[in-house]
Nucleic acid binder design. Structure first.
Lengths: 240, 240
DNA sequence: TTATGAAAAAATATCGATTTTTATGGCGAA
DNA sequence: TTCGCCATAAAAATCGATATTTTTTCATAA
């Protein structure tokens, strides 16, 4: 069946290029709406703190209320939306306090995951890190005109996932992914104070190399200062 | 409007005594169904690995497909259900491997949360711990006939929440709560090898006292052995 | 007997309309 | 003005029915 009427172009095709993975063909409308909404939330195309009306989403994504509400419920459970009974859904706010809590929590969890990964490292884990780093290094972070490079973001996410892949806890990896989603929102809205020059490739190189060499303390130090610097730049972007 | 027909008694009243809190009056059908389903899942009244048909839940909880599906989507996002597009929802399985991963992850996160809580302890945090411990100590874990005491479980959860309450990360507290939910399921299904005698009050006392006295290492050691022992008993119950 | 595939049954996913609740906009009174 | 209060509008929540997909059944052929 082909749905017609007041629908956006995005709604026609049940697929999407995701931030944390490749293009996927969604099988249900609910999952399609979920993926699109998630992408719009991560890129802060939906303003933080604003109300997200069901009717708006219905018109925007070309689905009925049922699949839209299912998608909204998922996103609320993941912490990207705030759900209030009888009141509707709201885009989670962006605040300095939340950024600080997020950064703290993220450093705690990623340090543990990274240390476990290093302690349990195998050849295939090492290879995954090397490949992810190589792929990341082949792309510029932004285009010449300063536009963020979506593919770079995808590979960046994949690289950090590769670092902790051997930690032996899918649950912990999932938590880290949730925190990475939140951090992504902050980077988008703050535009990360692009003025400060930064050699990200060197940073990524350092943490990967040290991890592979079994220098856990050094690797963790590199990873955490990477996150803290990013957070600091976001913080500047938020204030300024 | 009053719904009639093939509905269970539970469906009539939009309220519930929750495992991790007191009785709440739910405001929407979706939230009511969510709370009931969650409770049934935590107590393994819905068999692990079994299919959870939407129609069954509709009949069981006396709501339409829309609110039921919203509830199911939330529970899937929280890791209590497995959602497969076009296939439906399944109760998450109970396996030895998952128990081990769960225990590992839980120890990592709770240790961090506990250490932070102790490092940032305040008078009101200490008082919260003391009160929670006292309340827990006033109830038997089981009735004389061996029936688990629901109120004890509630207070047990509250006690562990109190321990990490000062960690300065609601996100981490939320993750710990999710892991506690999972652990609760394992304890229910394994019936926790009740044969082994165990002085749980002493265990709780030890971790609380050490934490309040600022003995972080000792408190963490007490907390983690508490979790590991429980996990071990569950493991025995699962195998046997 | 086992594999195959179409028909039937069952279950999921979705829509369109209705009910219920909340938010809004005057309008008169303190 | 500012506060309440009712009528209205808007939005959320929910239902009942339908469309779509998966699963099962069962007859038939290899």
């Amino acid at each position: 069946m082909l749905r017609l009427g007041l629908i956006s172009a995005a709604a026609v095709f049940r697929g999407l290029c995701l931030t944390d993975g490749s293009t996927v063909r969604e099988t249900t409308l609910a999952s399609s709406v979920y993926a699109h909404l998630r992408d719009d939330l991560l890129h802060c195309r939906l303003p933080p703190n604003s109300k997200l009306r069901v009717e708006w989403a219905v018109a925007q994504y070309g689905a009925g209320a049922s699949p839209v509400r299912e998608a909204l419920n998922r996103l609320a459970a993941e912490g990207l939306l705030d759900r209030r009974d009888q009141r509707g859904f709201f885009v989670m706010p962006i605040t300095l306090e939340e950024l600080e809590e997020l950064t703290r929590t993220r450093c705690w969890l990623e340090e543990r995951a990274f240390r476990e990964s290093i302690a349990n490292r195998t050849a295939s884990w090492e290879e995954g890190v090397v490949v992810a780093l190589h792929r990341l290094s082949r792309l510029p972070r932004r285009a010449e005109n300063g536009t963020p490079n979506t593919e770079w973001e995808t590979r960046h996410r994949a690289f950090h996932r590769a670092l902790i892949a051997a930690c032996r806890s899918d649950m912990l990896i999932g938590f880290c992914a949730q925190l990475a989603d939140q951090a992504y929102r902050y980077r988008q809205v703050a535009r990360e104070a692009a003025s400060v020059p930064r050699d990200e490739l060197a940073e990524h190189n350092a943490m990967a190399t040290k991890a592979i060499n079994g220098d856990a303390d050094g690797a963790v130090e590199a990873l955490l200062s990477h996150y803290r610097l990013t957070s600091e730049l976001c913080s500047i972007g938020l204030k300024g």
